[in-house]
């Protein structure tokens, strides 16, 4: 996992509310028993044109296909982004495509955690702020880059304003260091073993 400290990139506005994980990666695009090979299917229903069920080229109306937005690595999104199915493929697809951060007024909770596990920084900012950011990047996507500093927990916008965001310390630590949650937990091996020893007496019926 790539550590995340400071980052600056092109941001693409996708301001619809309730974009669910089925839309981020449709089921039929999840072809491998692997975390890779998914970027191509990201937003497939919107990103491509179809003849029947066959793709016939990019959909020019979709934001990531529009001039200036091709190399976006930050998403500006509407409320409740990543709601719906818990499929982590949605995040793998975004990560593989090259998305490093998503800024939205709110996220689906499973999706939010999945982002952190995969090195994508989910940032919650007020709706009005995200709308303003969207406006700024729309006018000049490649020039109006957005800067993110996870160390100071700030988003710096093209017009020079600065927005603080909050993120749970554990999530922040994992992202900054790029380390896995399993290794962090296994440092508490002893405590887990002690808990189980007592619990298997207290609730023996729950143990198989």
């Amino acid at each position: 996992m790539k550590p995340f400290r400071q980052y600056s990139g092109i941001a693409a506005p996708l301001m619809r509310d309730n974009v669910d994980t089925d839309a981020i990666i449709p089921s039929r695009e999840m072809k491998q028993v692997a975390k890779t090979g998914l970027a191509d299917g990201m937003f497939a229903d919107w990103r491509y044109l179809y003849k029947g069920t066959r793709r016939c080229g990019p959909n020019p109306a979709f934001i990531l296909n529009q001039p200036g937005f091709e190399d976006s690595s930050i998403l500006l999104a509407g409320n409740n982004f990543g709601c719906g199915s818990s499929r982590e493929h949605a995040v793998w697809a975004l990560a593989e495509y090259g998305m490093r951060a998503i800024i939205a007024p709110g996220f689906g909770s499973i999706f939010f955690n999945n982002c952190i596990h995969n090195g994508i920084l989910p940032i919650v900012l007020e709706r009005a702020v995200v709308d303003r950011l969207a406006e700024q990047v729309r006018s000049a996507p490649t020039k109006n880059r957005i800067q993110i500093d996870l160390e100071t927990q700030q988003v710096l916008t093209p017009d020079g304003t600065c927005h603080d965001f909050t993120i749970a310390p554990l999530a922040r630590a994992m992202l900054l260091q790029g380390i896995s949650a399993i290794d962090m937990t296994l440092q508490h091996r002893e405590a887990i073993a002690q808990f189980k020893a007592a619990d298997s007496k207290r609730r023996s019926w729950a143990y198989l």
């Binding site: 955690n113 399993i182 296994l186 887990i192």
Partner: peptide
């Protein structure tokens, strides 16, 4: 690792859906 795991709340189970990374964590650490 499935969002409709909350179904099991119907029995009084504290059950919830998780992503694959959390599932890895759950499997590896209980």
């Amino acid at each position: 690792p499935d969002s409709h795991t909350c179904t099991l709340g119907g029995l009084g189970t504290l059950a919830w859906g998780i992503g694959s990374s959390d599932c890895e964590h759950a499997l590896a650490t209980e």
